[in-house]
Structure formats: structure tokens, C-alpha cells
Nucleic acid binder design. Sequence first.
DNA 1: TGTACATCAGTGAACGCGCGTTCACTGATGTAC
DNA 2: TGTACATCAGTGAACGCGCGTTCACTGATGTAC
Lengths: 205, 205
Amino acid sequence: MPKRGYHHGNLRQALVEAALQLIEAKGPTGFSLSEAAKTAGVTPAAVYRHFEGREDLIAEAARQGYIMFADLMQHAYDKYQPSALAAFEATGRAYLAFARKHPGHYIAMFESGVSVNRTPELADAAARARQILERAAADLSQHIPEHKRPPASMFSAHVLAMSHGVVELYARNSPGATSPFPPEDLLESGIGIYLRGLGLIEPDS
Amino acid sequence: MPKRGYHHGNLRQALVEAALQLIEAKGPTGFSLSEAAKTAGVTPAAVYRHFEGREDLIAEAARQGYIMFADLMQHAYDKYQPSALAAFEATGRAYLAFARKHPGHYIAMFESGVSVNRTPELADAAARARQILERAAADLSQHIPEHKRPPASMFSAHVLAMSHGVVELYARNSPGATSPFPPEDLLESGIGIYLRGLGLIEPDS
DNA sequence: TGTACATCAGTGAACGCGCGTTCACTGATGTAC
DNA sequence: TGTACATCAGTGAACGCGCGTTCACTGATGTAC
């Protein structure tokens, strides 16, 4: 497959990567279709051969992000089987790890303002990611003292919320808030305390 | 004080309110200085009599938001004294309540991309809000089984993170994620489980 | 009470800019014969 | 193997737009006398 010339060869993916790079460098607001085209070494008009427009390009970047994210969580989940607890904790940690490793994708997914329902492909990818976390939560649910266990989707949402909050407030410098603790420690301890509250960890100390 | 005429009378505040209204309606990206001026019934150039520019205007909106936010938390804190537990829970709930009641301010504060350190006044207002939550956490800290209590700033951060995460993922429709539960319930139960993990609530069931 | 004048909030025209998007085109690629 | 041709990815010029920002100005306000 030719790399360069009049025909680019793989422009679609090159545009996605240019977009990710720009989003990471300048925030979701700073990203423009024209600049992405320039970065990919191509005229702005060429973008329209591959995408419907600016939003569609961001949506594709987000979609690829969700796929990577889901893979990462799936991998973490598999790795720590058969311990439902360890697997659940690992999928939570994967959230922060993903935000750190792939900030461009993360921003496209969660901060760009593009709705997860913009395209069916994007919605599917996002749903798959969510399902993995929910499965881990369902596994764990079995181990909760029988009577009065909360629905699995509920504490999956709790952990997701805390993970997201830690990332937004302390791992990304967006609001300029100084982190009192390393985000990884903060999330680890927060989830630990939460799981203790569920009766899943012994009050060890 | 005259309301209308060649001289506006209270343009500065009118611009802040126009900005808030636009930010709420169109997102942080959709807001423009020119449109805020138009909304306030004034030429774009007039804005420069009162603000250094677009960012400065958003910063002032955010500052007013932090002041209201701090007042709201302070009020909640005072109301539930002397119960450290109730006061702490109330300040946490205040976060979600604020996001609901004042979405424009909330966006200016947390989603606009304006750094909290942009102006000293903004930094002060944000610091005051943070301190109130941290004081509530410190009060509560006294009640934690003596040996091995985590630092107060740590579980203040945990609660803040979960509150923020719930708001971002489930209370605002930004990512288009459908909420499995009413955000208020989700936050309430999440914080409840967390506090149980700290040994502050009896395993009642 | 009336007049002259300083202040300064808001005007309106103008600027250069990058944006997203369109269009008729061009020329590289790959296939049919 | 060589030639004709269809395909279609990318060009480049052009568009209208709203943006943030500047500038010399105008006219309402409020104060000094």
C-alpha cells in the first residue's frame, strides 16, 4: 500500500490521528477540521471524502477510543479472574490508566461534547465498554452479603463516577485544582473504602 | 440608578448574566463575547470597558458561581450542625443541588476550560468553597475510629470526586449516557456506602 | 437655579483571521481488453 | 506486455460568516461654579 503521492493511501486514519494529536494539545475547543487537514498534509476539502464534517471526525476518534478502552478493561478483567473482587478493582483502575495513556481519545470521548448517540457505531462501542464494567460488577455482586445487595448497575455506576471524578478533578489539570494526592492513590483508596462499605473487604485495621 | 439610555447603568453585571444564559443554552463552546454583548443590548466593543476579553468575562461568571457554591455549602454545613456526619453529607448533596440550580455557573466553573488560577479573585473564591468541604471533612474525621484515620483532605477529595462524577456522567446529558438511577439517589447511596466503609455508619441491614 | 465643562460609558465602522463547506477540476491508480 | 479508460482521492479557489479586538468618536451624566 503506497504511503505518499497524490493519493494519500490512508488518509482517513491519518486524519483521525491528526485530530487526536490536536485535541490533546489544544483541548476540544482548539481543534479545527482545517488544522487537522493541514496536519495530515492535505487540503481541508479532502476531509469530506472521508467524513461528513468536523463532528463526524471527532465521533470516529471517540469510537476508536471506546474500543481501546473496552479492550483495556476486558484485558484487566480477564487477567484477574477468577477473583471477582480483583477483577472489579482492575477494571476501575483501567479507567484512570486509559485517561493517562490516551488523553486525546479520552477528551474526544468525555470532554468534546459529542454525544455518544451521534452515530450507531459510536453508541455500540460505548455500550460494549459499559457492559464490561457492569459484568465485573455483576460478578462481584454475588459475593455481597446475600440479603440487601444493591443492584450491580448501581455500584458499577458509583465506581465509574468516582473514577471519572478523580480523573477530571485531579488527573487532568483542566480546572487548575492542585491534587492533594497522586490520582492513582486517591482512586485506589477511594474504591477501597467504598468496597469495604459494601462488606466486600474486611475492616482490616 | 438609571436603568436604560445611552448609559446602561449596570452593564458589567448584565454581561455576566448574558454570558451565563448563553453558556447554559449553548455550552461553553457556543458562547461568544459578541453574542453576549448583543444579548445585553450593547455593541461588542462596549464589553471592553468592563472586561479584558472573553476569558475574563467567563472567569467572572465562574467567580460568582464559586461564591454562590460556597454560600450554599456553608449554609448546608451550618444547618446540620452539630452532627458532623449530617453536615458532611449535606455539603456533598449541595454539590449536585448547585449543578442543578445553576447550570450556567456550573459550566463556567468546571467545563469552560478556564483555569481556576486565571485571576486571584477567582482563585480565592474557589479556595473558600474547597475549604468549607474540607472543614466538614475534618469535623467528621474526629469520629472515625481513632487509629488509622485517613487524612481529612483525602476523603473530602473522594466525596468531591464522586459528586463531580455523578454530575458529569449522569446529571448532565453531555455524554448522552442514560442514567440508570436518579442522580440524587445515586450520589446519596454512593456516599452512604463510602461512609460505611469509613466506619461512620453502622452496617444497618 | 442655571450654565460650562470634565468624565467616561457606549457607538459604529473597520480590521484581519480562521472557520466549515461547496464546487468544478485534475491527475494517480488500477482494471479491461 | 501495452494501451485506453473509468474511478475517485485530493486540489485549489472561492464563499459567507462570526469571531475578538482596535479606534476615533459621541453624547449622557454629574459636578463646579
